[in-house]
Design a protein around this nucleic acid. Structure first.
Length: 954
RNA sequence: GGGCGGUUAGCUCAGCGGUAGAGCACUACGUUGACAUCGUAGUGGCCACUGGUUCGAUCCCAGUACCGCCCA
């Protein structure tokens, strides 16, 4: 059956995948021929997820590494799995229930809802696995793990209990990102900061008791630009509704404008007149003197910066909102709450966290309002009262043409960074709530040491700086979520609020004899469980074979963006739990963007769907593109054109086999490397040795782009462009021995191409591999070569073929520039060949004849007039085309070449004439420079001679 | 505001002490017995700017400008 014209990826990929699966090609330890292990943990995709380009890139890189190591005979494991994605999954299932007309989650109750989630998981949770298989990912799919699996669950609970008992986990009140839609705390990763059009309002906070001060503003030189008496301090805010919870006004300690009023009280200009709260004016380093008025209101419970200021200065933090983001409607009447708050501000009443938390400082008229509605009302009320900062605006009445001067409130339009929940799309609220935290400060040390001391290496190295910077300033990690889907926190409370932490209710009950217990309803952050991914997937806490064998793992491949969220946490957790760093190397790859470098998003409509790409171009083209672009650092801009280009590369490879087929060259099950006598064959075998070394070196150092480029240049630029072309005259010729040897070489070289390309392009290579009957193993299990360039390179053959290729290039170039028709075979004259050139030419005459399109070659004593001259090492060649060539054109061609050479040689001469260069440069560099100069000057003299001859012609 | 990067051919990017590379795009020619998803030849760069170190800087150092990303 003759080969198809091109590789039919759509048809072949599924068939090949099935075959791999059938023989268990990717099982842990498959094809192992040595004891060393190599293990990669997949960054678990979200169980609700579907494959996007980021996954495709991430998994391509992992697959290249694992296939390479597997072929090398390592005992490999690529551990796959998914995480349970608390919010996302709950959202998906709730949506589905709503669509199906089922009762709401809250009506259904927790156990029934969880049952629904599991049903969903069984049905749809495997989507991404199948998509990863289409990419060719060679995970051990039988070991697919899930963070909610029973074993994994037990591990998570065990770790929580142990860390709780060691005091590394605690419950406390801190400011967290709160999603008012899902009514849960969320992680930083789930918050998207987006710049939106916002406003900055300016309000007057009157000084208590009508006090006044001299307000003076100066320019840079200290000249007074404004001086007035004020009875207020001007405050700018983008969130007026939070004024109700202000605890202080802060100014920078060096701000002279306000020096005289530090320590005084000012009034929050909102709420019932009778109970206006007075708050202190304090100093803190946080306010920026040059920003706004330089004075900042401090609302500790609703802003992350203010929170720090409030903590530093012991300012009460009043929570204003409920879990839905509406203004609180609980608590005592406002008048009472305000009175207490005032007493606290005056310092006459003490306070603690619980007392503050219980207080509701929202005036009755705002209670229950949505936060955005409350904002409008607050603004309107302040403005109405005349406490907004105003400016004079001149307007002209269009009817009467009279001028009006009007005072209007100052409202600046200002882009602001606003946090949005990535799933809910609503504005995230910093919220003071009771949550569970990992006291990261207690476990961060070993994670820092592991990288500092080189037990774990982060690539690129800049990642290490970021890692240190983040871990050295780490904040407590909020691990509780107000969700149902996830690992429920193993803590029970008695009626007095005492905590009992235990793996099971029975054990907790045993600790709380006779007490009525209630379990904490919250679940753990998904990242807490995926923080245990390396040991959890390997069966910890059981002392499994796999745990012993593959842990610590070798390489983690993940995006730069989750260095903190996941990598750092895995480092801390594994070290805290089992005392070992989870991986030897962390390879951080680029983020995938569209061709313009923009983030891909559905709203932008610039999403490249890897499955669509695979359908159209095949998985190999996508994979090769990604490998080729996987340089260290930066952003990967993916465009379809590139993918198309690398699909063409696959076709090129395909056609090289079709070439072999055309010449009826039959691949055997094994195609051993011949020991050739022919220079051509020696040469390509040497080149193969070189490319293997390049590929190994590149993969060892995670330079996937170098590996891909080296293979591209070898397969296309060496094998197809030269070796295959050179082999034609031999294959068509009569020399049976040469023919046999060249066939054997071709078979071996093409086999090597398949082997070396397989990690990057597994499908097409496996397909071509299978065209030989009875291969002992599938390509995925074929031994990766171990020859070295030193063994395979024959220096003399390399030199000779380089000379031949250079000569053909030069003749072709000269022909093309002189407009010699491509089809025209010309006569070649050889002048003054030295012995090496003579021998090289003679040995490769047929190749040169064919590729340079030469009819005859004869020696001549001199170059005739009116001939094209081609200078080569140890020879001058001429193509007599009397009458045919344009003398001027040949002159300009040669002059141009001469000019370039002169310039280059000038540089070399300059260097060599500089005694300091010869003294201080490395000897080999000096030697190399000398050699280049000799060769160049030789060529210069040949070209000059040719120009002289041309001058004689006219 | 703090941190981390980047600026090299029209585009996307490698290179990172010895005088600049790839792919794509572009131009011209071409159905040469594998391949038009191709072949052959070619065009294209004061390597952001300014200083410094060096015999020598795209590469190292310092500063400037602009652009990203992360954290506030």
């Amino acid at each position: 059956m003759p080969m198809e014209k091109t590789f039919n990826a759509a048809e072949a990929e599924a068939r090949i995948s099935a075959k791999w699966e059938a023989i268990g090609a990717f099982r842990a330890g498959a094809n192992a021929s040595r004891d060393e292990t190599f293990c990669i943990m997949i960054p678990p995709p979200n169980v609700t997820g579907s494959l996007h380009v980021g996954h495709a890139f991430n998994n391509t890189i992992q697959d290249i590494l694992i296939r390479w190591k597997r072929m090398q005979g390592f005992d490999t494991l690529w551990q796959p799995g998914q995480d349970h994605a608390g919010i996302a999954t709950q959202l998906v299932v709730e949506r589905q229930m709503a669509a199906a007309g089922l009762p709401k989650r809250t009506d259904m109750g927790r156990p029934a809802f969880l049952e629904k989630v599991w049903e969903w998981k069984e049905e749809s949770g495997g989507t991404i696995i199948n998509q990863l298989k289409r990419l060719g990912a060679s995970c051990d799919w039988d070991r697919n793990a899930f963070t909610m699996d029973a074993g994994f669950h037990d591990a998570v609970i065990k770790v929580f209990v142990e860390m709780y008992n060691k005091g590394q986990i605690y419950r406390g009140k801190r400011l967290v990102n709160w999603d008012p839609h899902f009514e849960t705390a969320i992680s930083d990763l789930e918050v998207e900061n987006i710049e939106v059009a916002g406003h900055m309002w300016h309000f007057k906070y009157p000084l208590a008791g009508g006090e006044t001060y001299e307000y003076v503003e100066r320019d840079e030189d200290g000249n007074v630009t404004l001086r007035e008496t004020r009875d207020y301090i001007s405050i700018a805010t983008t969130r007026p509704e939070t004024m109700l919870g202000d605890g202080a006004v802060a100014v920078h300690p060096s701000d002279e404008r306000y020096a005289s009023i530090i320590g005084k009280l000012c009034e929050i200009p909102v709420g019932p007149k009778a109970q206006r709260r007075l708050i202190p004016i304090i100093t803190d380093e946080y306010p920026d003197k040059n920003f706004g008025s330089g004075a900042v209101k401090i609302t500790g419970a609703h802003d992350f910066n203010d929170y720090q200021v409030a903590k530093r200065n012991n300012i009460p933090m009043y929570s204003l909102m409920d879990t839905k983001g509406a203004m609180r409607a609980d608590g005592r009447p406002y008048a009472d709450e305000a009175a207490t708050a005032q007493a606290i501000a005056n310092g006459t009443e003490s306070f603690d966290e619980a007392k503050i938390a219980a207080m509701n400082l929202v005036p009755e008229e705002y209670r229950g309002l949505d936060r955005f509605e409350a904002r409008k009302r607050v603004i309107a009320d302040i403005t109405h009262e005349g406490l907004a900062v105003t400016k004079l605006v001149k307007s002209i009445d269009p009817e009467t043409n009279s001028e009006h001067l009007q005072l209007i409130p100052v409202v600046e339009d200002k882009p602001i960074m606003q946090p949005f929940g990535d799933r809910s799309g609503v504005v995230i609220e910093p919220m003071l709530t009771d949550q569970w935290f990992v006291d990261t400060a207690k476990i961060v040390g070993p994670a820092l040491d592991a990288v500092r001391e080189g037990r774990t290496k982060i690539m690129p190295e800049s990642g290490e700086k970021v890692y240190f910077h983040w871990l050295e300033n780490i904040e407590p990690w909020c691990i509780s979520r107000q969700l149902w889907w996830g690992h429920q926190i193993p803590v029970w409370f008695d009626e007095d609020g005492n905590q009992y932490c235990a793996p099971t209710e029975a054990e907790a009950q045993a600790m709380a004899l006779g007490k009525q217990l209630t379990r904490d309803p919250d679940v753990l952050d998904t990242w807490f469980s995926s923080g245990l991914w390396p040991i959890g997937t390997l069966g910890w806490p059981s002392n499994t074979l796999e745990l012993n064998k593959y842990f610590p793992t070798n390489t983690l491949v993940t995006g730069q963006d989750i260095l903190f969220f996941w990598v750092a946490r895995m480092m801390m957790m594994q070290l805290a739990v089992v005392g070992k760093e989870p991986f030897g190397t962390v390879y951080l790859h680029q983020l995938v963007r569209d061709e313009k470098g923009e983030k891909m998003s559905k709203t932008r409509g610039n999403v490249i769907d890897p499955l669509v790409i695979i359908d159209e171009y095949g998985a190999d083209a996508l994979r090769f593109t990604m490998a080729q672009m996987a340089a260290l650092g930066g952003v990967l801009k993916l465009s379809e054109d590139r993918i198309k280009g690398y699909r063409n590369f696959g076709t090129k490879l395909w056609n090289s086999f079709s070439f072999a087929e055309h010449y009826e060259i039959k691949f055997e099950a094994e195609n051993p490397r011949p020991t050739p006598t022919n220079t051509l064959n020696k040469w390509i075998i040497g080149e193969t040795g070189k490319v293997l070394e390049e590929v190994d070196a590149a993969l060892t150092t995670y330079r996937f782009n170098d590996a891909a480029n080296a293979l591209y240049a070898f397969v296309w630029g060496k094998v197809c462009d030269w070796f295959v072309e050179f082999s034609k005259p031999i294959l068509q010729g009569d020399d049976a021995a040469a023919k046999a040897e060249t066939e054997a070489t071709l078979k071996w070289v093409l086999d090597q191409c398949l082997i070396l390309l397989h990690p990057i392009m597994p499908f097409i290579t496996e397909e071509l591999w299978a065209m030989a009957p009875d291969r002992p193993k599938m390509l995925a299990h074929t031994d990766w070569p171990t020859y070295t360039a030193a063994e395979l390179v024959d220096d003399a053959a390399m030199r000779e073929m380089t000379w031949v290729i250079g000569l053909i290039d030069d003749i072709r170039s000269a022909r093309a520039q002189m407009h010699v028709p491509a089809g025209l075979k010309v006569d070649l004259l050889m002048v003054g060949l030295d012995d090496t050139a003579k021998a090289a030419f003679a040995a490769n005459e047929t190749l040169i004849f064919r590729l340079a399109r030469i009819e005859t070659a004869n020696t001549a004593s001199e170059v005739p007039k009116g001939a094209i001259t081609v200078a080569a090492e140890g020879a001058v060649f001429a193509i007599p085309l009397a009458g045919l060539i344009d003398v001027d054109e040949e002159k300009s061609r040669l002059s141009k070449a001469l000019e370039k050479l002169e310039k280059d040689m000038g540089g070399l001469r300059g260097r060599l004439n500089n005694p300091k260069f010869v003294e201080s440069a490395k000897p080999e560099v000096v030697e190399e420079t000398r050699e280049k100069l000799v060769l160049g000057e030789d060529e210069i003299s040949k070209i000059k001679a040719a120009l002289v001859r041309l001058a004689e012609v006219g």
